[in-house]
């Protein structure tokens, strides 16, 4: 099944193996994710696209360890993260390796924490820094995300959606993760803020070797940011492969439909990128 682009030279960093998530029981049961095999290599940028309800977010929750799959498992550097016991919890010592940016910037920050406090808390938890040192490191991370020290003093309700998302990214970077899972991080922020966030993510991936799993319904963004892509439909992975190949020569009719529904898709099929850094 691995295509020519990935030749299995290295062990995947994070992998969902035959992961199925079933909601409901009996006749009402349905699979939000159905037998998904999805992996990300170290330093790789991978996309997951699909319409709403296709199981993208559930897949993200499974990969980040928020929710155990009903069947199958998630492997982090080759080791299964969910044990066979009833608890099925992500081991805490491994937590830092996989971080996440959530879809809704309005609920992903604690309303009672200043921006820097949210980041400093994660810094304290994983870098062993305390007090002023943790704050300095938090401010440095925030600045690298384009958040000024003045903005860092604000509570979330004083920040824009785009600023909040960048605070969330800074918080997610504090444990120095190996992979960042971004679940529709740009879907509720404005265009210019989207471009800024995408450029930051792209830069992180290229310069610091952070692997990114970018989940979106927006094919243009996925094309800009990722080199490999999975297409999901109603819980199934219907197509996967090199992003350029999938966009230029989609094999699955559903993928073709998705691509054709992008406004001005013919220009997107060429090598120009929608966002320039």
């Amino acid at each position: 099944m691995p295509n020519e682009w990935v030749t299995g030279m290295t062990e995947p960093l994070l992998e969902a193996r035959a992961a199925t998530v079933t909601y409901g029981y009996g006749g009402a049961a349905f699979n939000a994710v159905n037998d998904a095999n999805v992996y990300v290599q170290p330093g790789e940028a991978v996309g997951v696209v699909g319409e709403s309800g296709s199981g993208k977010t559930t897949l993200a929750r499974v990969l980040v360890g928020l929710q155990p799959p009903t069947k199958g498992n998630v492997l982090l550097e080759g080791k299964p993260i969910f044990g066979a016991t009833a608890q099925r919890k992500f081991p805490r010592s491994e937590r830092w390796k996989v971080q996440m940016v959530f879809q809704d910037p309005y609920s992903s920050l604690n309303p009672r924490q200043r921006a820097w406090e949210a980041v400093a808390e994660a810094v304290s938890a994983w870098q062993g820094l305390r007090g002023n040192q943790a704050k300095t490191e938090a401010l440095r991370l925030l600045r690298s995300m384009g958040i000024s020290p003045e903005q860092a003093e604000q509570f979330p309700h004083r920040l824009s959606g785009g600023q909040r998302q960048r605070v969330s990214v800074a918080r997610a970077l504090a444990p120095k993760p190996k992979i960042l899972i971004a679940d529709e991080p740009t879907s509720s922020i404005d265009q210019s803020a989207q471009a800024q966030l995408l450029n930051l993510l792209s830069q992180l991936q290229r310069e610091s070797g952070l692997a990114i799993l970018f989940i979106s319904h927006d094919l243009g963004l996925v094309r800009y940011l990722t080199s490999r892509v999975y297409v999901m439909k109603r819980g199934d992975v219907v197509e996967q492969g090199d992003t350029v190949r999938v966009f230029n020569k989609p094999e699955n009719p559903y993928t073709r439909l998705l691509i054709n529904s992008i406004p001005g898709h013919s220009s997107l099929a060429e090598t120009t990128l929608p966002y320039e850094s």
């Binding site: 980040v64 360890g65 928020l66 805490r92 937590r95 830092w96 996989v98 971080q99 996440m100 959530f102 992903s108 808390e121 994660a122 938890a125 994983w126 969330s168 918080r171 997610a172 504090a174 444990p175």
Partner: peptide, 8 residues
């Protein structure tokens, strides 16, 4: 959820 992902 973020606190769980961050392992607090």
């Amino acid at each position: 959820h973020a606190t769980q992902v961050l392992g607090y």
